[in-house]
Amino acid sequence: MKTRTLLYKEVQRPQPFIWLVFLSLAALMWYSFIYQILLGNQFGSKPASDATVIVFWVILGVAFPLILLKWTKLIVEVHEDGLYIRFMPFHLQYKKFLYKDIKDCKSIKFSPLTRFGGWGFRVNFKGETGYISSGKQGIELTLKYQTVVISATNPDELIKAMDIKNVL
């Protein structure tokens, strides 16, 4: 198996306010689980069944917070043949953007909320794809048939690492 030379690596975690949203939702699920299942009271004016409360508690109260806090991260790597990204735990393999397929690359400042409707793996109405974990800066790759935006904590260093190959 051929090994690639790593020229640059950046690992991004979700922004703290996203954690706050998920942890608030998790807290509500824990409260409803304790109140309805453990204490035997009805939660709300139109309570869900116990099975529904348990399912929502497992998914939104346990699984999502663990996934968000423990495993969610965006890994951006520059190798001699291109840019590789992986949005864990959603991508099983790295997504490759080979230099031969990149027409242009530039550092940008953008609003994830207005351009893509939020953070994560996104596609907007213009057909642009976004891999956004944190911050308001990143790089914009112009490929043959699409535009890709990748958040970066240090976009200039990322572009500099890509320029080492002098292929852009």
Rank of each mutant, 00 (worst) to 15 (best):
4 R>K: 11
6 L>Q: 10
6 L>R: 12
7 L>F: 10
7 L>T: 02
8 Y>R: 10
20 L>T: 12
22 F>P: 15
23 L>N: 13
23 L>Y: 15
24 S>K: 10
28 L>S: 08
28 L>D: 13
30 W>N: 09
33 F>K: 02
36 Q>G: 15
38 L>R: 01
38 L>Q: 04
38 L>E: 03
40 G>Y: 04
41 N>L: 02
41 N>R: 11
41 N>G: 08
42 Q>M: 05
42 Q>N: 07
44 G>T: 00
49 S>E: 05
50 D>T: 06
54 I>V: 12
57 W>N: 12
63 A>D: 11
69 L>A: 11
72 T>E: 13
73 K>I: 00
74 L>I: 04
77 E>D: 09
78 V>H: 05
81 D>A: 00
82 G>N: 05
82 G>Q: 03
84 Y>M: 15
84 Y>P: 08
84 Y>W: 14
97 F>Q: 01
103 K>W: 03
105 C>H: 13
106 K>F: 06
110 F>H: 00
111 S>G: 04
122 R>I: 02
123 V>T: 01
124 N>L: 12
126 K>R: 12
127 G>Q: 02
130 G>S: 06
132 I>Q: 01
134 S>Y: 05
136 K>C: 06
137 Q>V: 07
138 G>Y: 04
144 K>L: 13
146 Q>P: 08
161 A>I: 00
164 I>P: 13
166 N>G: 05
168 L>N: 11
